[in-house]
Nucleic acid binder design. Structure first.
Lengths: 309, 309
DNA sequence: ATGAAAGCGCTAACAT
DNA sequence: ATGTTAGCGCTTTCAT
């Protein structure tokens, strides 16, 4: 009787409204959902809350635009946590789940899918049975490589994530392909692995201390960019650099960091679109959407090789 | 019969387990909650997802440590959205709510409190009936002021948030008090207001173009710090600066940005502690916890006034 | 136009 | 040790 029905007497209506505000009645959403059979809620499991998450913001906006509530959880970049978060959302019977997959094996999702839960992965794929939206990693690396070539660099190094991580693998692979396509040498130039200062230091040593040293660096993610800049310190203006993935303060650095920027707005909106489409038609074919990236020139990627200035 | 009871026959137990994995049965959390009478979930409403949120991470950790599930929503820094988020959590009958209050009036919470919902505010207070945990804003400004004085600055400017925002008001007030206590002049030195480039440009003009110009700046939040650094550009090494609130890349800048850092770990844990204490004893007195801040010296705050070097 | 009853999926308290 | 039942708070259907 609370739901604004058309067939309710005005006297009763006002009495009810009076009671409502007198008791500050708020309906129990769980009971409503249980009875109604739908939760009007979608869940988002993201890798981290402590770093900014523009995609999550976009997901929240798109969710609200679709008259749904967003329930966010963090996976702390941990496979086990991801499982817990996603399963917990399943038990809450959300109407759909978007998530950033961590590991490689997502078989635990099969029962959920079987049960009709719409699921969309973003940033990384989560297997053949799950829709996903990814950035165009290969094109991004290609753009970066071309920009540096254009400015005269012939020895370009890559420092990025572990190749077992999907994005790390894609970007390192694309880098090798770019170099090969241009007839360059990979010797001492490719450094995938965990992003910690010691490994980055060793990688920089190899790349810059080579007998024909790198004059430019492409970094595979924001964490790598930051660590490389930190270690280069005052030297950082002497080697050209392009980072994969933009971050808020990249333009405050001197020189400003040229980056291959992803498009969080499109990624987020596409993820929700895919989710809604999947919910509407559970048997539609699985889709992988690739979102374009773009180069933002801020100076560091436009430096000439040293000795040519 | 699913809940690992002690009084269940082994044969039945195994048959049930078989059925469970055969059907991939997952209990409906909402029905469980409804029946059980408790949600074992706490809600967190934060101002933004797009900027990193170390406190939220800590809240998530503390929540998990207490065997509870965290349900996060974003308020997009909007009073209306805050209301919606918090009320939505109430309708889901979470066991408690932590949130970052936006506006000044939080009367809409009174019914929730009346109904026994434990609520804790952090970063800003939300009225006399709500526990809260705040950073020591006044002490932070005092520390910054002292550091700059110590390095010879006599003309120090403050550029921060609008004073109608709680933290903005506290920090601007503490700045005025510091200057007054040291017998300095405030003329042209205090600039609270919205953080947009035009206003910041005007403020810098006033402070640095004064007949006895500022030789140092204290910024009231991270956004102000970033905007000031951006506008100072290459000049940024010529004026000393201390920012309120640390941010991830402050140390990559040159000079590194000296900051008054808040303590997200303590803030987050304290918020959850307060929440649990309030849930355990609804009639305990309201508490305001003040969390200490600390100075991180990175160079920008240790510059001498120009002309004295 | 209003009231009564059934049932969403579960758990707890009962009866066997 | 197992099976049955009532009821959490709601919405929907069916009778009045």
């Amino acid at each position: 009787v609370v739901n604004e029905d058309p067939k309710v007497g005005p006297d009763l209506a006002s009495r009810v409204r009076a009671a409502i505000s007198a008791l500050d009645y708020q309906p129990d959403e769980r009971a409503q959902q249980l009875r109604r059979g739908t939760s009007r809620t979608i869940g988002a499991a993201v890798r981290s809350f402590s770093e900014g998450h523009p995609v999550l913001r976009e997901i929240e906006l798109a969710t609200r635009a679709a008259k749904l509530t967003l329930l966010a959880m963090s996976t702390e970049d941990d496979e086990q946590r991801e499982r817990e978060a996603v399963l917990s959302m399943g038990r809450r019977r959300v109407d759909g789940i978007v998530f950033e997959p961590i590991g490689r094996n997502h078989d635990y999702l099969l029962p959920e899918i079987e049960a009709g839960m719409p699921i969309v992965a973003f940033d990384r794929p989560a297997g053949l049975y799950i829709d996903c939206v990814l950035s165009d990693n290969a094109a991004g690396i290609g753009i970066a490589y071309r920009q540096l070539s254009l400015h005269g660099h012939r020895r370009i190094a890559y420092i990025g994530d572990d190749e077992r991580i999907f994005t790390g693998g894609e970007r390192a692979g694309a880098f090798r392909a770019s170099v090969a396509a241009n007839g360059g040498s990979l010797d001492g130039m490719v450094h995938p692995g965990p992003i910690d200062s010691r490994r980055i230091a060793a990688a920089l040593d190899k790349a810059l201390g080579h007998e024909t040293p790198a004059t430019a660096i492409i970094t595979g993610n924001a964490a790598a960019s930051v660590e490389v800049i930190r270690q280069l310190g005052a030297e950082s203006g002497r080697v050209a650099m392009i980072g994969f993935d933009d971050f808020p303060l990249a333009e405050l650095l001197r020189p400003g960091l040229t980056v291959v920027a992803q498009d969080p707005a499109t990624i987020g909106r596409t993820a929700i679109d895919l989710l809604i489409a999947r919910a509407a038609d559970p048997k539609r074919p699985i889709q992988s959407m690739i979102v374009p990236v773009r180069l933002i020139e801020r100076g560091s990627g436009e430096l000439q090789p040293i000795g040519r200035t």
